[in-house]
Design a protein around this nucleic acid. Sequence first.
DNA 1: TTGCATCGTCAATTATTATTAACATAAATC
DNA 2: GATTTATGTTAATAATAATTGACGATGCAA
Lengths: 182, 182
Amino acid sequence: MNIEVGKQLRAVRTAFGLSQRELAKRAGVTNGMISLIEQDSVSPSVGSLQKILAALPMTMADFFTRDMEAGGDVVYRAKDLPDVGTGDIQYRLVAASKPDRKMSILWETYEPDTDTGEDLLTHSGEEGGVVVEGELEVTVAGNTWVLGPGDAYYFNSRLPHRFRNTGKQPARIVSANTPPTI
Amino acid sequence: MNIEVGKQLRAVRTAFGLSQRELAKRAGVTNGMISLIEQDSVSPSVGSLQKILAALPMTMADFFTRDMEAGGDVVYRAKDLPDVGTGDIQYRLVAASKPDRKMSILWETYEPDTDTGEDLLTHSGEEGGVVVEGELEVTVAGNTWVLGPGDAYYFNSRLPHRFRNTGKQPARIVSANTPPTI
DNA sequence: TTGCATCGTCAATTATTATTAACATAAATC
DNA sequence: GATTTATGTTAATAATAATTGACGATGCAA
């Protein structure tokens, strides 16, 4: 009967792009149970909730820490990136309004029709990047955008995500991760 | 039947210095239920666990983030504090082996027979300090030490704690908190 | 000792969760 | 349009959590 849990589970499940039946199958519970939980008409045992979250995957601690909202601040269009360059060198700052970020850099190339795989990525930390050349489809928490040169992204890495080159030529991006993966 | 939860609840409850019956009364559940949970012979509903944790108080996210072990590294005796001073000024470093700490400072005086109150303190962040003068009784996670001049402490502030001057003269300490409370 | 209070545990019952197996709806395929 | 396949919901049942009320053990006081 405790509110919150059902709504949170539904938000998380849809963010991972799974149906109730798919999630139930992976978790080893029934689809009906997930339906009842999401309607807050039952309070699941922590054992059941752990099985369900493990199938996403997600930890209990993350589940009960609701900073999972994508909140619109995911995509930053090229024209909206503030120029903080000085002198001859030009820097365009991504997600300038978000404080307390810790970063490091990667240079990536996606050949046509390649992506980060069937399963959605999800891990701790934050990540962001800028498309330099070509066209990149970005999916975060169930929302999909197609980015062109100069467009950028920034999100919490716990949100399930996927990158895909949907264009005819290689796509190149400059990306940043935290904590540093390299 | 999922291990972990029972042991964690017992650790947390005893750290708060409560009996099963006391906690059950505050939480609005039965003492038998808490006994069964702690033995991992049932998997409580998240509603029940939330009621129990709310009575401590503790959040679900904190409960499932088990960095709650006091682990012996709570009390640092005067003779064990490494001297990192340079030149005329002497600094003795508390908890030198623990990385990633963020600090700020307080100067406190406890008159004889005063303490931080009946209810145990518990909040986010970390705190540490050094007794400068007098005698201070420190209780953390159910363990009690009496510290004299030069002795020091350091612990996660989520562990329930209490300070008390058990001596005949004022007790003075230098303490540090994070995040800065002043 | 004896009595009294508190502790944690446990069998039996009650209340709730979890499963089974259906249903209704909507979108895709023939 | 009819058929199939997927979606989320729900009544009835089975399985499990939660309560009740007891028990033995321990510590303290009379």
